[in-house]
């Protein structure tokens, strides 16, 4: 734990709004965080909370509406196409759907070598082949699958291809967008182990986006909880699970079905209502309509994300000393 802190990614006030027929959708609204090299930030939230958009906006796969993203001190948001392509060599993404995220017309070897080819990184054919073999080995794909096509493989193997492709450029930083949610439990665990091993070996930094709290706890050093486009709580993984502060985080934790009999038939406190959508949101806490502790103070002004304990940030008036 005594390693010196060196931020690899700094995100300041990142915003991404989408124009929809009903109004402006605040998919990511004023999110800021810093990740130190070699650490993993877990981003948790339910569907529609903006976690996937956050990942894509950091990579500029969708253009941010506002804010700054610094990768090793360089501002990604203000880069031109050429600089961006160069910077993207350092950051890669692993996608959620192992079925739509790889080109069905390419063989395994072609998919993994494509990043090398489009960036003209390897000179000879042999160099490329060697690298493909090495990547396949790293993610545990048998060499005989080299010339297989994606439709012949199951979800777990396809996801390994996706990981090998992301690793081909030897990035420092990888955004994992729900990399295991489409997979069966036993395959999920295989993929998670691969990701954890890679982190150890290569000192990778991850943003791990997921809706699955048990997975995120397992893999992350720090966790940010998102609700309707905003980060409502951020803390170290252990702290967040032992001392959740935001009522939403608490509800989220209580809602996980635990695979043992300790909580059997002890009805968890269920939060009412459904996740809304952040179209033209009025100022104020977005969780307030579902929150048991909400008062009139929660409406009208956005709660600030404040540090309430060492490294523990929460955006809730209950813990900001304002109530």
């Amino acid at each position: 734990m005594s390693e010196k802190k060196k931020p690899i990614l700094v995100v300041n006030n990142l915003k991404k709004y989408f124009r929809t027929k009903k109004g402006l959708l605040h998919a990511v609204d004023d999110v800021s965080f810093t990740i130190d090299e070699g650490r993993t930030l877990g981003v948790v939230g339910e569907s529609g909370c903006g976690k996937s958009t956050l990942g894509k906006t950091i990579l500029r796969l969708t253009e941010p509406t506002g804010g700054e993203v610094f990768l090793e001190g360089e501002d990604i948001v203000s880069m031109n196409e050429k600089q961006l392509r160069k910077t993207r060599l350092k950051m890669q993404m692993i996608f959620q759907d192992p079925y739509s995220s790889i080109d069905p017309r390419m063989s395994v070897a072609q998919i993994i070598s494509d990043p090398l080819k489009v960036n003209r990184l390897c000179g000879s054919r042999k160099e490329i082949d060697d690298r493909v073999d090495r990547m396949m080995d790293v993610v545990g794909l048998a060499p005989r699958l080299r010339d297989s096509y994606p439709h012949e493989l199951d979800g777990g193997r396809r996801q390994r291809i996706g990981i090998a492709r992301a690793l081909a450029l030897d990035p420092k930083f990888i955004i994992c967008d729900e990399p295991v949610s489409a997979l069966d439990v036993s395959i999920q665990a295989q993929i998670i182990n691969i990701l954890m091993d890679l982190k150890e070996e290569k000192g990778l930094t991850y943003i791990f986006i997921t809706h699955d709290l048990s997975v995120v706890k397992h893999i992350s050093d720090e966790i940010a909880v998102m609700y309707l486009g905003q980060c409502v709580e951020k803390a170290s993984s252990d702290e967040l699970f032992s001392q959740p502060l935001h009522p939403y985080t608490k509800a989220l934790l209580a809602a996980i079905p635990v695979p043992n009999l300790s909580k059997r038939h002890a009805r968890p406190t269920v939060i009412r209502g459904e996740v809304g959508n952040p179209i033209d949101p009025a100022p104020g806490c977005r969780f307030a309509p579902r929150c048991d502790f909400a008062t009139e103070k929660c409406v009208g002004r956005n709660p600030e994300l404040r540090e309430v304990a060492n490294g523990h940030f929460v955006a809730c008036l209950l813990h900001n000393g304002e109530m």
Partner: peptide
């Protein structure tokens, strides 16, 4: 046993999961 081992434990911090190797 493999199914249980594949699940991250929320109550304890584990370093590794114990998945079932191979495929269906």
């Amino acid at each position: 046993t493999g199914l249980f081992g594949s699940l991250p434990d929320l109550e304890k911090k584990t370093d590794r999961l114990y998945p079932i190797e191979g495929l269906m």
